[in-house]
Amino acid sequence: MPTHHGVRTALRRPRPHMTPRNADVAALTHRLTARDRWLIRLLHDHDVLTTNQIIALTGRARRATTRRLSTLHSLGILDAFRPFLTTGSSPYHYTLGPAGAAILAAERAVDVRALGWRPDATSRIAHSPWLAHDVGRNDFMVRLAADHHRPENRMTLWAGEHVCKALWADHIHPDAYAHITHTPTDGGRRRTVAFFLEHDTGSMRPERVDAKLTGYADLAASTHPPTSTLVLVHASTPGREKTLRALLGPTSTSLGVPVATTNATAHAADSPLADVWLPIGTRAERTTLLGLRQAFPQAGPAPVAPGTWTPDATDPQTHGALPWPPTPPLPPSAVGPAAGPTPHREAR
């Protein structure tokens, strides 16, 4: 994952001008596979995904994936750019293109404007000062979702920043909310760990990170009975994690908010699912993400209305603040017809 994104320069992959209005959605119907539609929804949920992240989620070979992405780009379904790096080259960063927005709007029987998509969406993302943060957050979540070495542990829910804002903006502004479900290979009882993610890049004052715990305490107090949800704080370096823990420890204890921390170095050679999480106030050694369930037995899922995570095709407005549930983090296993001409090979 690139770590030095240029704010002023982003190389956009060329393509003839297209808008949702002139996209022939009907003509594209037979060109789309189930995975293509899944990717359209996922990019709408999370704004931007790199080539490497999409490869990790789909589990397909690099050549096949880059060829398919190039085809979807040529059709206007995806947009793409490469951020400027002072050294080396960055992978393509994919966003939702005009035809993709039109397809998603047609699928949901709404106008494109109701999706929140704008013609300048890709330019805004490419030049956003938060691009490195957003890509880093998504990279972390993709690593959790695509950990094929631990098939018994699966990310069953990934609610991005947009969904979190719609549901809990009165109290908190997390980077993500997710469920990791453990299904024992011996047929035992399934267990789920629900958590909010605070992805810290070191750009924010530690005191501001600490102040966020008040919002999580307020959210817990809004339920009856009060139920706290685990907060995971991912720091950029071991030193940053140590600094944050010194502040978060007393606050977490006084407010009753369950918090665990890790840093990018701790899981660099393994996985965020491994023994890399250090709970605050309960134990001295690191444990697995599923082990945090034992460290914080009082923690539970975040408060939402019944049926929030379940799609209702008959009435997309059922959930009020959340018209459509989050897209599953992993693609459907069934793949439809292959599509399109052979594209030009993507630069790595």
Rank of each mutant, 00 (worst) to 15 (best):
227 T>N: 08
213 L>W: 03
197 L>K: 03
192 T>A: 00
224 H>E: 13
228 S>E: 12
188 G>W: 14
215 G>I: 06
194 A>I: 08
230 L>H: 11
211 A>I: 08
239 G>T: 01
225 P>V: 04
225 P>N: 10
208 R>Q: 12
215 G>R: 00
184 P>N: 08
208 R>L: 14
191 R>T: 14
186 D>V: 11
221 A>C: 08
185 T>H: 06
188 G>H: 12
197 L>V: 15
208 R>F: 08
215 G>A: 00
227 T>H: 13
194 A>E: 15
194 A>G: 11
235 A>L: 01
190 R>K: 15
219 L>K: 10
206 P>N: 01
199 H>M: 13
184 P>Y: 11
235 A>M: 01
223 T>N: 03
203 S>C: 09
203 S>T: 13
225 P>E: 08
214 T>G: 12
217 A>D: 02
233 V>W: 07
230 L>A: 09
187 G>A: 04
228 S>L: 06
213 L>S: 02
239 G>L: 02
199 H>Y: 15
228 S>Y: 02
207 E>I: 15
193 V>M: 09
222 S>K: 02
207 E>Y: 11
224 H>C: 10
212 K>R: 12
213 L>P: 04
238 P>H: 01
214 T>F: 02
196 F>M: 06
222 S>C: 01
217 A>T: 13
211 A>F: 00
201 T>I: 12
202 G>F: 07
201 T>S: 11
